[in-house]
Design a protein around this nucleic acid. Structure first.
Length: 156
DNA sequence: GCCAACGTTGGC
DNA sequence: GCCAACGTTGGC
């Protein structure tokens, strides 16, 4: 099983919004980046866990943990002209975009802010802490995963 | 609100 | 296939 980090702007969809869904489960729709599409379509598997990251937030940071409960399938929001993520180049016969379903595992006791992640030498190789990174989903290795979980209880 | 970094598009 | 223009991301 693999670990991931998934970004969402809390003004659009926060970890509290996920917690409010039936079964605390929802689609991770709206991804319109090919690298991320490929990860969702080809690599993410049921049982994988992911850090739920709040981007464009004050402060940005990791808010909790989710689990993949359905593997990649076509993102239907791309088919809907009224949807903000509509893509006329995607259709049901040849879907361009994929999504997974995620279920809340738990919220962290505190949000682990990006500035702490950046200060942790164990995380220096994560794309997240590097300048200019724009991936909204990225793999996390086991050491990084453990290092981040350990930070939940070691806050300042 | 600013702007650097990056991905995508489209003319050639 | 190149690359300038453009749109988006996302921290600050």
């Amino acid at each position: 099983m693999n670990y991931w980090l998934m970004k969402s702007e809390p003004a659009e969809f926060s970890i509290d919004d996920l917690a409010a869904q039936p079964k605390q489960t929802d689609h991770w729709d709206g991804v319109r980046n090919y690298q991320v599409r490929n990860m969702m379509r080809d690599q993410m598997a049921v049982g994988d866990q992911a850090l739920f990251y709040h981007s464009n937030a004050k402060p940005p940071g990791v808010a909790g943990i989710v689990e993949v409960v359905r593997e990649g399938y076509p993102d239907h929001t791309a088919f809907d002209p009224d949807d903000p993520h509509y893509d006329p180049k995607s259709d049901r016969d040849n879907p361009r975009w994929y999504m997974v379903d995620v279920q809340l595992v738990r919220r962290f006791q505190r949000l682990i802010p990006l500035n702490e992640l950046k200060a942790n030498p164990d995380l220096a190789d994560m794309p997240l802490v590097k300048k200019g990174n724009r991936l909204s989903v990225m793999p996390v290795d086991e050491e990084q995963w453990r290092a981040i979980l350990a930070m939940e209880d070691s806050g300042e």
